[in-house]
Amino acid sequence: MSTTADKRSRSSVPWSSFWPGFWKAPHRPLMLCSVMAALVGPLLAGTDPQLHARLLVFGFAGAAIGAYLLTVLPGWTKVRATPARLGLLVALWLWGRLMPGPAEALYFIGLSFTLAPPILRAGLYGRLWAPLAPLLLALATLRPDLPVESTPLLLAALVATVGARALPAFLASATGHPQPPDNLALYLSAPLLILGAIALPHPAWLVLAALILLGQMLRWPLIAPPLGTMLLPPWLWLMAALLLMATSDGNPSHALHMMTIGAIGGMIHAFISRIFARRGAATLIAQPASLIAAATLHAAALARLLDAVSLALVFWVICWGITLAQLIIHCRQQPQVPVFIGSRKKQTK
Rank of each mutant, 00 (worst) to 15 (best):
residue 11 S to T: 09
residue 269 H to L: 09
residue 189 S to Y: 06
residue 198 I to P: 09
residue 114 T to D: 04
residue 25 A to I: 06
residue 186 L to T: 11
residue 11 S to P: 00
residue 113 F to S: 15
residue 154 L to Q: 07
residue 345 K to Q: 09
residue 288 P to M: 09
residue 277 A to G: 05
residue 347 Q to W: 14
residue 30 L to T: 00
residue 18 F to S: 12
residue 57 V to M: 15
residue 246 A to I: 13
residue 246 A to M: 10
residue 4 T to R: 10
residue 321 G to R: 07
residue 88 L to P: 00
residue 301 A to M: 11
residue 159 V to Y: 04
residue 199 A to C: 14
residue 348 T to H: 15
residue 349 K to H: 12
residue 212 I to Q: 12
residue 89 L to K: 00
residue 97 R to A: 06
residue 107 Y to P: 01
residue 313 L to A: 15
residue 98 L to E: 04
residue 120 L to V: 12
residue 240 A to C: 06
residue 29 P to V: 02
residue 110 G to N: 07
residue 252 P to A: 08
residue 175 T to N: 08
residue 294 A to F: 14
residue 33 C to T: 03
residue 5 A to E: 13
residue 294 A to C: 12
residue 291 L to E: 02
residue 348 T to L: 15
residue 129 W to Q: 04
residue 315 F to I: 02
residue 303 A to W: 04
residue 349 K to Y: 15
residue 287 Q to K: 11
residue 112 S to M: 03
residue 45 A to G: 09
residue 345 K to I: 13
residue 132 L to E: 06
residue 216 Q to Y: 00
residue 132 L to S: 05
residue 161 T to E: 11
residue 225 P to L: 11
residue 79 V to D: 13
residue 232 L to D: 05
residue 319 C to K: 03
residue 216 Q to E: 13
residue 63 A to H: 03
residue 21 G to T: 13
residue 184 L to N: 04
residue 39 L to H: 10
residue 180 P to E: 02
residue 179 Q to V: 07
residue 279 R to T: 12
residue 242 L to V: 02
residue 2 S to C: 07
residue 140 A to E: 05
residue 349 K to Q: 11
residue 14 P to Q: 10
residue 54 R to F: 06
residue 18 F to V: 13
residue 315 F to T: 07
residue 200 L to N: 11
residue 145 D to P: 01
residue 179 Q to C: 09
residue 96 G to L: 03
residue 312 A to K: 05
residue 283 T to H: 10
residue 153 L to C: 09
residue 156 A to E: 02
residue 10 R to Y: 13
residue 213 L to E: 11
residue 112 S to Q: 02
residue 227 L to E: 06
residue 214 L to H: 03
residue 299 A to F: 05
residue 98 L to F: 13
residue 5 A to H: 10
residue 49 P to T: 12
residue 80 R to I: 07
residue 97 R to I: 01
residue 334 Q to Y: 01
residue 165 R to T: 15
residue 56 L to N: 09
residue 136 L to S: 01
residue 12 S to P: 00
residue 174 A to N: 05
residue 277 A to Y: 11
residue 265 G to R: 06
residue 8 R to C: 06
residue 66 G to V: 04
residue 71 T to W: 03
residue 163 G to Y: 04
residue 244 L to G: 03
residue 2 S to P: 01
residue 125 Y to E: 08
residue 3 T to C: 03
residue 51 L to S: 06
residue 85 R to Q: 10
residue 40 V to W: 10
residue 300 A to K: 04
residue 222 L to E: 08
residue 81 A to E: 06
residue 144 P to M: 06
residue 95 W to A: 11
residue 199 A to E: 06
residue 193 L to G: 04
residue 338 P to A: 14
residue 348 T to S: 14
residue 238 L to M: 08
residue 5 A to R: 12
residue 58 F to D: 03
residue 169 A to W: 05
residue 222 L to Y: 05
residue 343 S to D: 12
residue 133 A to I: 08
residue 72 V to S: 00
residue 59 G to Y: 04
residue 313 L to C: 14
residue 296 T to C: 15
residue 27 H to R: 08
residue 219 R to D: 05
residue 40 V to R: 08
residue 25 A to V: 08
residue 196 G to F: 05
residue 69 L to E: 00
residue 69 L to W: 00
residue 195 L to G: 14
residue 251 N to P: 02
residue 320 W to S: 03
residue 17 S to C: 11
residue 191 P to W: 01
residue 43 L to I: 07
residue 170 F to A: 12
residue 43 L to F: 14
residue 275 I to K: 01
residue 81 A to M: 07
residue 174 A to L: 02
